Computed example of a mutant assay.
Amino acid sequence: MTQNKTALICGSLAFDKIMQYHGRFGEALLADQLHKVNVSFLVPTLRTEYGGCSANVAYNLNMLGGDPLIMATIGQDGGEYMERFAQLGIETRAIRKIASAYTAQCFVTADLDGNQINAFHPGAMEHSQELYAGDVGQVAIAIIGPDGREGMVKHAADCAALGIPFMFDPGQQLPRFDGAELIRFIDQATYLAANDYEFELLMDRTGLTLPEIASRLEALIVTRGAQGSEIYAGGERHLIPAVTAEKVVDPTGCGDAYRAGLLYGITEGFDWPTTGRLASLMGALKIAHQGGQNHAFTRDEIATRFHAAFGYAF
Rank of each mutant, 00 (worst) to 15 (best):
M1A: 15
M1F: 11
Q3C: 05
T6I: 14
L8I: 07
L13N: 08
A14M: 13
D16C: 03
M19I: 09
H22T: 11
H22Y: 13
G23E: 06
E27C: 06
A28E: 15
L30A: 14
L30S: 14
D32E: 15
Q33V: 09
V39H: 12
V39W: 08
F41Y: 15
V43N: 12
T45W: 10
L46Y: 15
T48K: 14
A55R: 12
Y59Q: 01
N62Y: 09
L64W: 11
A72Q: 03
T73K: 12
G75T: 12
D77P: 02
G78R: 08
E80M: 12
Y81N: 00
M82V: 11
E83W: 07
R84P: 00
F85N: 04
F85E: 01
Q87D: 12
E91G: 05
R93C: 00
K97Q: 15
A99S: 15
S100Q: 15
S100R: 14
Y102P: 00
F107C: 02
F107E: 00
F107G: 00
N115D: 15
Q116V: 11
I117P: 00
A119W: 13
P122A: 07
A124Q: 04
M125R: 04
E130N: 11
E130R: 10
E130S: 14
G134Y: 11
V136D: 07
V136Y: 10
G137K: 13
G137W: 13
V139N: 06
I141D: 03
I144W: 05
I144C: 11
G145T: 13
P146R: 09
G148M: 03
R149N: 08
E150R: 13
M152E: 10
V153C: 06
D158Q: 15
D158R: 09
C159Q: 01
L162E: 03
P165V: 10
P165I: 11
M167A: 14
P170H: 06
G171H: 06
G171L: 02
Q173C: 07
Q173E: 07
L174I: 04
F177K: 03
I183A: 06
R184S: 10
F185G: 01
F185I: 07
A189F: 08
L192I: 15
L192G: 03
N195K: 07
N195C: 05
D196L: 11
E212G: 02
E212W: 08
E218C: 06
A219M: 02
T223I: 08
G225A: 12
A226E: 14
Q227R: 14
G228E: 04
G228R: 09
Y232M: 03
Y232I: 05
A233C: 02
P241D: 05
K247Q: 13
V249H: 04
P251E: 05
P251R: 10
T252L: 01
G253Q: 05
G255V: 01
D256T: 09
A257T: 05
G261W: 06
L263I: 15
Y264I: 06
G265I: 09
I266H: 02
T267L: 01
P273R: 12
T274G: 01
R277L: 00
R277M: 03
L281K: 03
G283F: 05
L285F: 06
A288H: 07
A288P: 00
G291H: 06
G292D: 00
A296D: 12
F297Q: 01
T298Y: 12
R299N: 09
D300S: 13
E301I: 10
I302H: 05
R305A: 10
A308Q: 15
A309D: 02
Y312I: 05
F314E: 05
